[in-house]
């Protein structure tokens, strides 16, 4: 299954613009990365940085107003030019997605079992009872207690954690090779978050899936990801292995992000937030998008968007002061 030559996921210069009659915003402005089978990547960024849109672009799950540019190749398929029928077969079987809010991402009028079985029946072309059998296997795989009984439960009868497990089971229904997760733990409380993350980590390793997790939570990021990409205003500003990025952040935005995080050892100490707010995506500055908020700003920053430069082995940053 594992391809040695070409990576499983290869994104090149991905751009997404939302265009309507009186609106033209560039949400994603040139994102490139590759991901091999079995690798977990985390896209980190604040609200509106384009991380969710990047994720959705990977399965072309965007509203009609979106204009997608660049190349998206998954498992050797060019997603941007795929016909609708092929795209539907790709969704769910090759690539599948876990959503942020499990309460609203599960249909309230169908049982968990029905919803999982439906997807299995569609993709594998098996009978409904075989689909249900597979659904039971999946619920056991995601460690839902008393799985046979939960099969006939409606989403509102499950707790948030169980619902998210069911959501994961649904995403895994047809053995996807790429799993996308859009803030999978944001809607859950802290104790459940860690259980879900551990589960995802374990499943990802056992099933050998390439996983992309979008989050704004640093704890989540370091818990599950091998690779990390920090996103700001629609561009990756720093990429590298999660250990390198966490330990030696090079881009001023990444540093600011880590400094503004709350953790146990800083009781009583004042928080150190990044001043200002993210730029308006409709009118991005010509130079570095972070320049207006950057503590290390210098006039040269406004010239042009800096390139990604290798600041250390396999660690890249988009800043004129690097390396």
């Amino acid at each position: 299954m594992v391809e040695t030559q070409t990576p499983l996921v290869a994104i090149e210069d991905l751009t997404v613009r939302f265009v309507s009659r009186d609106l033209d915003i560039s949400v994603v402005n040139g994102v490139s990365f590759t991901l091999a089978a079995g690798e977990a990547m985390c896209i980190l960024g604040e609200s509106g940085s384009g991380k969710s849109v990047t994720l959705r672009a990977l399965m072309r799950l965007l509203p009609p107003a979106a204009r997608v540019g660049g190349k998206i190749s998954i498992g050797g398929l060019d997603v941007t030019t795929l016909a609708d029928g092929d795209l539907r077969r790709l969704r769910g079987s090759l690539v599948s997605m876990i959503f942020q809010e499990p309460m609203t991402a599960l249909d309230p009028v169908f049982t968990i079992g029905t919803q999982i079985a439906e997807s299995v029946v569609f993709h594998d072309g098996v009978s409904y009872s075989a689909g249900r059998k597979r659904a039971l296997e999946l619920l056991e795989l995601v460690q839902i207690p008393s799985a046979p009984r939960r099969l006939d439960a409606y989403p509102h009868e499950l707790s948030g954690g169980l619902r998210q497990r069911a959501m994961i089971a649904m995403a895994l229904a047809c053995r996807p090779r790429v799993l996308l997760a859009d803030e999978p733990t944001t809607a859950l409380d802290a104790t459940v978050q860690i259980q879900i993350l551990l589960l995802m980590r374990q499943l990802q390793r056992d099933l050998g899936m390439a996983t992309i997790i979008v989050t704004h939570d640093l704890g989540v990021a370091c818990e599950v990801a091998d690779k990390m990409a920090v996103m700001y205003a629609g561009r990756f500003v720093e990429t590298g292995s999660s250990v390198d990025v966490m330990e030696t952040p090079r881009h001023p935005y990444t540093r600011g992000l880590f400094q503004s995080t709350v953790h146990g050892g800083m009781r009583g100490a004042p928080l150190d937030p990044i001043p200002g707010s993210p730029p308006d995506l409709a009118e991005l500055p010509p130079g570095c998008a972070f320049a207006p908020r950057c503590p290390a700003y210098e006039p040269a920053c406004d010239g042009r968007v800096p390139d990604m430069v290798e600041v250390a082995r396999a660690q890249f940053a988009r800043c004129i002061r690097c390396p």
């Binding site: 539907r88 959503f99 942020q100 599960l106 993709h123």
Partner: peptide
């Protein structure tokens, strides 16, 4: 979301 989730499963 569940309509989008359904779309995401193809």
């Amino acid at each position: 979301d569940y309509v989008e989730a359904a779309r995401a499963t193809g």
